[in-house]
Amino acid sequence: MTTPAPLGAGGVRLWVVVPAFDERAGIARTLAALAAQHDRDFRLVVVDNASTDGTAAETEKACAAYGLGVVVVMESRKGTGAASDTGVRHAIAHGATHVLRTDADTLPDPGWTAAGRRAFAAGADLVTGPMRARTDEVRLRPWERVVLPGVIGLCQTFGRFRPSNRAPELKGPYRMSPGCNIGVSATAYEASGGFPRTAIEELHEDRELVNRVRRVSTRVEYHRDLAVHASVRRLRAYGLRDTLRWYLDHGHHPDVVDVRNIA
């Protein structure tokens, strides 16, 4: 039986969950960003979601190089929702009071875990923050640098007025919470039912989790210092119009859902 880590600063026993599918080529950069956190008082679980490319071995190699402790958990049921749920429940079963989730192609800012801890210590049940575009994967076009922040802002505004996000049984405020930048308390996760165990093309598991938590808590918060830099691979693969249609209830139906290494 694993002994839970002692409570950290603010009475928060923090875990970070990273679902990963065929991310051997790039996951080391995400792990390097986690190793560079100002607050290293967290445990890390990477959920290998039926990868075929040696993602688990690369994870363990990179974490050893960075001096970052990691537990690799296998989830054979492919899907971001299923993998995320497995990771969060593993963390809670091993003593986590709070969990932050990011993706295996995302670079959290150095103050990300510290910001999450502060928010949780102050009583938040679900947290999110800014999502900015990565610039180290591919060169952003000039118009993308201008347009993307506005598009994200428009999506956030649309989400607040979307009828399905305004049902009377939802207590807390709606916050657009991308899966690459979301955190939840163990109490709210278990009370709400957590992430749906779905595939990425079936349901946006991040939005579903937000609304599930809103049914049991009013403490759903956006924190500007909880920031990540997310991959633009999907934008490159789909184009701006179809990327927006994809995130709007999968209005775009691509032949390839799991985009990788798009130049």
Score class of each variant (00 low, 15 high):
E60N: 02
V71K: 14
G79T: 07
D105P: 06
D41K: 03
F42Q: 03
V88G: 01
V72T: 13
P142L: 10
A57L: 12
E137A: 13
G54S: 09
E60H: 03
T97H: 03
E58T: 06
P108T: 12
H98F: 04
D39H: 07
R141N: 10
G116W: 07
V47C: 06
S51M: 08
D85C: 12
L100S: 05
L68R: 01
V99S: 00
F42V: 03
G129K: 04
H90R: 13
V73Q: 14
V72N: 10
E137M: 14
G54C: 10
E58Q: 11
P110M: 07
E137V: 14
V127D: 00
H90W: 15
G67L: 04
G79D: 06
V99Q: 00
T86I: 07
V72D: 05
A119E: 03
T106N: 09
E75G: 04
F120V: 04
H90S: 01
P142R: 08
C63V: 02
A121N: 05
R139W: 05
V127Y: 04
G79Y: 01
R77D: 10
R132D: 10
T128C: 09
A121V: 08
A124W: 01
P108S: 08
A36K: 05
G95C: 10
E75L: 12
R40P: 11
F42R: 05
G116F: 05
T106M: 05
P108L: 08
A50Q: 12
R101C: 09
F120S: 00
I92P: 02
G54W: 15
S76I: 01
D41R: 02
D109E: 15
G81H: 06
G54E: 07
A115D: 10
D103G: 13
R89G: 00
F120G: 01
L100T: 02
L100Y: 06
D48I: 09
I92L: 14
R117W: 11
D125G: 11
A124T: 08
A119H: 05
L126R: 05
R139P: 14
G67A: 10
W112I: 00
W112N: 04
A57T: 11
S51R: 13
R118E: 07
V73P: 02
T106K: 02
V127G: 00
W112P: 01
D109I: 03
T55Y: 14
F42Y: 15
Q37V: 03
L68G: 01
